[in-house]
């Protein structure tokens, strides 16, 4: 018998994650793929793997999409729910840690804090213009120190004398770090200092004015870093819990939301796994009709225009109008 499943898709700036969840909300499969600036391609590659592995074993009941590319994913797969990643993350966390009151989420280019009370989100914040509190900051420093990012946390744990490094700005942190290196501090101590700098920056910017109460869940790609986890625990004075599927929580939330949406709608919009055979193309143009010059994007399925968006006035939403060449 085929197993009934829901698919959750999180198209982010750094990674595209896909999860397969059964009706009991257990994860059957999770995929963590690099987006590398080509979300359509990555999505198709991911779904292709899914088809090869599961095609005759599963019956897809519904699909949810989230992440900054959620609309794009929706047009390609036909999602039952398109949800912002803040809500998706909160849903996933509170399903697996029911009494969670604070979620710390650090991804590649953005970081968020979500405050929950009585299992509902009551407040949140997201980084605005600065990347000093995100994964890319750590990524860069790891590259500079010439150690693989996977080992970063282990190095930090070996330190017993962390160095204070300015965390306000990623560029200043870098020069501060170099100065400390020249003074002869050990790699371990510097790495630990960087972890603490990131945590300090996160709490001072995104966490400012928020009441951070336990249980605290830490998720997103950076949660793999044990050094950051320890730095959070030190700064907050509480245990920080990293869930098993910390790096795909957004996709997981989307799948759970899809389950709810389909139960309500009693049908799915999913276009089937064979969409991987369709040739998708994106063509953009600058609208010539007013000085706003909106960048309009059209998505083509096997050379047929399927949807268009990006215009402020909505004139191009009607796909029977031909795009200007």
């Amino acid at each position: 018998m085929k197993e009934s499943v829901y698919i959750g898709i999180d198209v982010g700036s750094v990674s595209t994650n896909i999860v397969l969840v059964n009706e009991n909300q257990e994860i059957l499969k999770k995929m963590y793929l690099r987006t590398m600036g080509n979300p359509i391609n990555v999505l198709q590659v991911g779904l292709c793997q899914l088809r090869d592995e599961y095609n005759d074993k599963i019956n897809v009941l519904g699909v949810g999409s989230t992440g900054s590319g959620r609309q794009l994913a929706n047009f390609i797969v036909g999602a039952d729910i398109v949800k912002n990643e803040i809500t998706a993350h909160a849903v996933a966390s509170s399903t697996y840690v029911p009494d969670v009151r604070t979620i710390l989420e650090i991804g590649g280019q953005d970081s968020k804090i979500i405050i929950l009370r009585n299992q509902t989100v009551c407040d949140f914040a997201m980084n605005t213009v600065c990347a000093a509190g995100t994964g890319s900051f750590i990524d860069r420093q790891a590259a500079r120190l010439n150690i693989p990012i996977e080992d970063f946390g282990d190095y930090a744990l070996k330190s017993d004398n962390p160095v204070r490094i300015a965390g306000r700005c990623a560029v200043f942190a870098e020069s501060d770090m170099i100065h400390k290196q020249q003074l002869g501090y050990s790699k371990e101590d510097i790495i630990n200092g960087l972890c603490e700098a990131l945590v300090r920056n996160y709490l001072n910017n995104i966490g400012k004015g928020k009441e951070i109460l336990p249980p605290i869940v830490f998720q997103g790609g950076v949660a793999a870093n044990k050094g950051i986890k320890k730095a959070f625990e030190k700064a907050l004075g509480h245990e920080v819990y990293v869930p098993e599927h910390y790096n795909v929580m957004g996709a997981l939330g989307a799948a759970l939301l899809a389950q709810k949406a389909v139960q309500k709608a009693k049908r799915t919009n999913f276009l089937g796994l064979n969409i991987v055979d369709i040739n998708f193309q994106v063509k953009g143009f600058e609208c010539p009709n007013c000085p706003n010059a909106c960048e309009v994007v059209g998505i083509y399925k096997d050379d047929n225009l399927a949807a268009r968006w990006g215009d402020k006035c909505g004139r191009w939403a009607d796909i029977s109008i031909e795009s200007p060449s």
Binding site: S68, N84, I86, T87, T120, V121, F124, M126
Partner: peptide
């Protein structure tokens, strides 16, 4: 606009739930 839309949508979710 994506970043702003994410915040606005999440905010509306919070308000709706309340």
């Amino acid at each position: 606009e994506t970043g702003y839309m994410t915040r606005i949508e999440a905010f509306i979710d919070v308000v709706q739930k309340r």
